[in-house]
C-alpha cells in the first residue's frame, strides 16, 4: 500500500502541478506567459550560481574517492553501516547536508554521477538531498537576525530531525528499490 501511494505521488506530482498551477493562475487573472518568463529568468541565474559550489565539492569528493581514501573509511565503518543497511558511500553526504546546501548538492551530484542515478546509492543520495535542509545555516541566519545567542535545544532538535530523515531515507529507498 505504501509502495503504491509513493509510486503514484512520484508519477503524478509534476504533471499535476504543471497543469494545476498555470490553470489556477489564469483563473486568478495572472498574465501567465509574462509572469512565467519573469520567474524563469531566475532559474538561469540559480543554475549558474551553483557552479562554484559544484566544482568545489566535486573536486574534493573525487580526490577523496579516487585516491582510495574513501574506500578506507567505508571499510572501517562497514560493521556499523552494514548493521543499519546504509551504504557507506553516502556518509559524507549525511555529514554535509546540515552544513551547506551547495556542498551537499555537490556530493550528491558526484554520487549520482559515479554510481548512476538509477542505482540504489543514486536514489538514496537523491532522496537524502531532497528530504533535509541546511539546519546549521538556517539556525545561524534566523537567530542571528534577531540577536538570539542562546539557542537552547534548537540545534539538538534540528540535528535529531536530520538524522531521522536520513534513517527514514535509507529505510524507504531500501524498501522501494532494494
Amino acid at each position: 500500500m505504501l509502495e503504491l501511494i509513493i509510486n503514484v505521488i512520484s508519477k503524478w506530482a509534476i504533471p499535476f502541478l504543471v497543469l494545476f498551477i498555470p490553470l489556477f493562475a489564469y483563473i486568478k487573472g495572472v498574465k501567465v506567459y509574462e509572469v512565467f518568463i519573469e520567474g524563469a529568468e531566475e532559474g538561469f541565474k540559480i543554475a549558474i550560481k551553483l557552479i562554484p559550489y559544484l566544482v568545489a565539492m566535486l573536486v574534493a569528493i573525487s580526490v577523496f574517492r579516487n585516491s582510495g581514501a574513501m574506500a578506507i573509511v567505508v571499510e572501517a565503518l562497514k560493521p556499523v553501516t552494514d548493521l543499519l543497511h546504509i551504504p557507506g558511500e553516502v556518509l559524507p553526504l549525511a555529514i554535509m547536508r546540515p552544513l551547506s546546501g551547495g556542498g551537499a548538492l555537490g556530493i550528491s551530484t558526484e554520487l549520482i554521477n559515479t554510481f548512476g542515478p538509477d542505482s540504489l546509492i543514486g536514489r538514496l543520495a537523491s532522496t537524502m538531498q531532497g528530504s533535509s535542509d541546511t539546519t546549521f545555516f538556517v539556525l545561524t541566519v534566523y537567530f542571528g537576525s534577531v540577536g538570539i545567542t542562546k539557542y537552547r535545544h534548537a540545534l539538538w532538535v534540528g540535528l535529531l530531525a536530520d538524522i531521522s530523515s536520513f534513517i527514514a531515507s535509507v529505510y524507504i529507498v531500501n524498501r522501494m528499490f532494494g
Binding site: L2, I5, I6, N7, V8, I9, S10, A13, I14, R123, S126, T127, M128, G130, S131, S132, S165, F166, A168, S169, I172, V173, M176
Partner: peptide, 9 residues
C-alpha cells in the same frame, strides 16, 4: 524519488 523524498521528510 519524489515519493521517497516526501516520505523521508
Amino acid at each position: 524519488i519524489v515519493g521517497t523524498t516526501i516520505f523521508a521528510t
